[in-house]
Every structure is written in structure tokens, then in C-alpha cells.
């Protein structure tokens, strides 16, 4: 491949490459800097945070906030819970979504259009918070981690996109497998899924991030505070700047230290941000889809 590129490394091509690399570098810096500030701020003292508007290296370095977080049993517990629910939840939601998306991609399947319409309808119309709560309660899911997973098991938006990916799947490949005597489930499991790694990786990321960032489900469905997730803790410390809490604050409320807020933001975002770099290796491996289209 490199030979090919060398062969055609024309002058305008190189100029393009250079501009592209510089443009992307600027984009990377512009998006990275604010987060570096958040991280730096979490190690800074209160007066420094108040005095300096923006910095990437704190003058005085303090571990106060992290010491508090990592000696608090509740914090450690909620980190473990959040990671656990996210891992199990992502697997469950991927299962629900992919098993439904695959048959819906089969244009010859009877009832397919009806089901797609049902999905689209559900994407736009919902019964609202309280009726959903009553269903979850009726199923006995209150105070269980399933309440954070099952009510969002399929995101209709994701389902439609995955279905469309499958629609572009090589028909010949599946047909030949069928002739070899494989059942539809066999084809799905042994041929389609292994070739869909980029898509699985993408939607694993989407679902994982959604579960990780979910705030409403734990708020509504968990009474037992020993089951709280990180997002609840995060909202608790950033409450004074939460638009939903405006005018609703007890006048005696004393906001937590700024450094503490930033440290909790770091703890609550860093683990989930690490997921993408790990998934990236799967993005280059699906090769066959798209080679045959339609």
C-alpha cells in the first residue's frame, strides 16, 4: 500500500496532507484543552481556581479532593456499581438490539414493515416518566440494577441504523451459507456478527456511554442509596450550577469546593472516555460489508 501511495504522492496531494494534519491538530487541541483544565483544576487549591481563569498546570498541587474521594466508601462503591452496570447493561442491550435488527434487515420477511413502523413510532412517542415508572414498579424492578438496563434495552434510533447496516450485507455470502445448510441463527451468529465488528464496537460505545451517563433511571428507580451510581453523585456536587435546580436550593445550602467538583467530574468521565481508544482497534477489521451493496 505504501508503494502505491509513493507512486502517487503528487505535489497537491502532499499539500493536502499537510493542511489536513495541521487542521486536525488544531481540532485536537481545541477539544482537548478544556478537559486538561478540568483535570488540572482538580489538583489546584480553591484560591487558585478562583484567581486564575484558565490554566493547565496548577501552581500549588493538592491531592485533597482525590484523597477525600478515594477514602470514601460510598464513592468506591458507586464506581464499582457504575462499571458493573455499564458492562452488563451494554451486553444485554447489544443482545436485544442486534437480535431484532438482523431479521428486520431481511426485506422478504413478512411483517417487517409493520415492526419497523412500530419502532419508528416508539422513537417519537413515549408514555412519559410516570407511566414508565409504574411499569417498572409493576415488574418488581425497583431497587434492582435491572431497572437501569431493561427500560432502555433498545434505542430505536440505534436499532434503525444497525438494521440499515445489515441491509447492505452481502446477500450472496448468506445465501451460500444457507446452501451449506446453516440456519438463520447460525448465519447470524457465525457469519454476520463476526463481520460486523466495527458496528458492534460503535454501538457498544453508544450504549455504554448512555448507561454511564444515565441520571434519570437511577434517580427514579433506586430508593436504596447504597446502590447509587456515579451520575447521582456527580449531579449532587454540581447542583448549584444545574439549571434544573435553580430557584430550588435551600438558602442554607453551601456548595462544595470547586476543586472537589472538578475531581468528581474527572472521576465520572475518565473511565468511560477510555472505552473508545480500546474499541478503536475493531474499527479496521470489518472488511466485507459494503463490497456488495443492495
Amino acid at each position: 500500500m505504501s508503494d502505491m501511495h509513493k507512486l502517487h504522492n503528487t505535489k497537491p496531494g502532499r499539500v493536502f496532507d499537510l493542511i489536513n494534519v495541521i487542521f486536525l491538530a488544531v481540532a485536537a487541541i481545541v477539544t482537548l484543552l478544556p478537559f486538561i483544565y478540568v483535570v488540572a483544576g482538580s489538583f489546584a487549591t480553591e484560591s487558585e481556581l478562583a484567581r486564575r481563569a484558565f490554566f493547565i498546570i496548577p501552581e500549588t498541587f493538592t491531592l485533597e479532593a482525590y484523597r477525600y474521594i478515594f477514602t470514601s466508601e460510598a464513592f468506591i462503591r458507586s464506581i464499582v456499581i457504575t462499571i458493573g452496570v455499564t458492562a452488563v447493561g451494554t451486553a444485554v442491550q447489544l443482545f436485544f438490539t442486534f437480535t431484532m435488527a438482523y431479521p428486520l434487515a431481511k426485506r422478504a420477511l413478512r411483517g417487517r414493515k409493520l415492526l419497523i413502523n412500530i419502532v419508528i413510532f416508539a422513537m417519537l412517542f413515549s408514555g412519559g416518566m410516570i407511566p414508565t415508572f409504574l411499569v417498572v414498579q409493576g415488574l418488581g424492578l425497583i431497587d434492582t440494577y435491572w431497572a437501569l438496563i431493561l427500560p432502555n434495552a433498545i434505542n430505536p434510533f440505534n436499532l434503525i441504523i444497525i438494521k440499515n447496516f445489515f441491509q447492505n450485507f452481502s446477500v450472496e455470502l448468506e445465501e451460500s451459507a444457507k446452501i451449506d445448510g446453516a440456519s438463520e441463527i447460525g448465519i447470524f451468529w457465525r457469519i454476520v456478527l463476526p463481520l460486523s465488528k466495527p458496528i458492534i464496537a460503535t454501538f457498544a460505545l453508544f450504549y455504554a456511554v448512555a448507561i454511564w451517563n444515565d441520571f434519570m433511571s437511577p434517580l427514579l428507580y433506586l430508593n436504596d442509596s447504597s446502590k447509587w451510581t456515579l451520575q447521582l453523585l456527580l449531579r449532587q456536587v454540581t447542583i448549584s450550577s444545574d439549571p434544573n435546580a435553580l430557584g430550588n436550593l435551600d438558602p442554607d445550602y453551601v456548595p462544595p469546593a470547586e476543586g472537589m467538583k472538578l475531581a468528581i467530574i474527572v472521576i465520572a468521565t475518565l473511565p468511560i472516555m477510555m472505552v473508545y481508544p480500546f474499541l478503536q482497534k475493531h474499527f479496521a477489521k470489518g472488511l466485507l460489508i459494503g463490497s456488495v451493496k443492495g
Binding site: F95, F96, T97, T99, M100, Y102, P103, L104, L115, I118, V119, A122, F125, S126, G127, G128, I130, P131, T132, L134, V135, L139, L150, P151, A153, I154, L159, E184, I185, F188
Partner: peptide, 20 residues
């Protein structure tokens, strides 16, 4: 293969829809 997905939509998406 459709069963889990359809069940999901019935229980968690359509059952609460009376709320509309």
C-alpha cells in the same frame, strides 16, 4: 430472533403509552 426485541417494545415502550 425477533422475540426479545418485540417483547421489549411491548412492555417498556407501548405499555406506558396510555400516559399520552
Amino acid at each position: 430472533l425477533l422475540i426479545p426485541g418485540v417483547l421489549y417494545f411491548l412492555v417498556f415502550r407501548y405499555a406506558p403509552m396510555y400516559g399520552i
